[in-house]
Nucleic acid binder design. Structure first.
Length: 243
DNA sequence: TCATTAATCGCAC
DNA sequence: GTGCGATTAATGA
């Protein structure tokens, strides 16, 4: 399935980190958090490398420094359900944190990615000592919960076509596009795993959309011609969530 | 370049 | 709508 070669570890602090949307970044210059930010680690993983094994013991939490990753859960018949895609500054592995002993999800890097890693002990201590960090984390959890509840509706009530459109819009919203093509390149299988369908359905839907002049494709890349037309198709379900 | 991997489509169910 | 398999296109070593 996924490669599991060794992950190199570097030691770095958050000081001078250029990441602006990182949840812990704003504490980097505070004296009281010196220990916290100095004892984190940076992991470097290659494209396709899995850094969280589903069911593994929880020992910390990751934040993407640079790169992208997919977060998934494996279903009963071994099918992957992609929960979300994460980009720089986002937290991964948070659901296993706290009372859970094992990660309920797996995560693999979609490109060469740098991850900041905070051990469980380290983070617990920081949360107890820093109300602002705890509050921001709480907001993050609340937002995540809201999003996953909405995703249940998306999958159970929308048609395949609508789910595929929703997925494309999600990628566009989150990763943007350049030169008319989405910045994050995903395989058809990954779109299927996110939209809750099969690879064939995605391919068929995409070629239909292409014929209708709504999108364009070039290899794995997907481009949107008219975002409003796509949005109009799923607007009746009115779930537009930013994340 | 060539071999591997992914996308696509037709067809049966 | 689903899943298999043949064909074609894209990718990467």
């Amino acid at each position: 399935m996924h490669t599991r070669s060794k992950i190199s570890i570097l030691q770095t602090t958050c000081i001078n980190c250029t990441q602006t949307n990182c949840i812990v970044n704003s504490y980097a210059n505070s004296e009281s958090n010196r220990k916290f930010i100095e004892s984190k680690k940076i992991l470097k993983c290659k494209k396709g490398q899995q850094f969280i094994m589903e069911g593994a013991m929880v020992n910390g939490l990751f934040i993407i420094l640079k790169g992208t990753a997919k977060v998934f859960r494996t279903g009963i018949n071994g099918k992957e359900q992609i929960v979300r895609f994460a980009k720089s500054g986002e937290v991964i592995g948070h659901r296993g944190f706290g009372t859970e002993e094992h990660y309920p999800i797996g995560a693999v890097a979609l490109e060469d990615t740098l991850l900041c890693y905070f051990s469980k002990e380290l983070l617990q201590e920081a949360l107890l000592n820093n109300a602002k960090l705890a509050y921001d984390m709480m907001l993050f959890y609340a937002n995540e919960l809201n999003r996953s509840e909405s995703k249940v509706k998306t999958i159970s009530q929308m048609t395949v076509r609508e789910r595929v459109i929703d997925s494309i819009l999600y990628i566009n919203r989150k990763f943007g596009d350049t030169d008319g093509y989405l910045n994050l390149v995903l395989s058809r299988k990954e779109y299927a795993d996110y939209a809750g369908t099969t690879e064939e359905q995605v391919i068929r839907t995409l070629s239909t959309l292409k014929k209708e002049g709504l999108i364009r494709t070039r290899g794995k890349k997907i481009g949107i011609y008219n975002i409003d037309n796509l949005k109009a198709e799923i607007s009746q379900h009115n779930f537009f969530l930013d994340s």
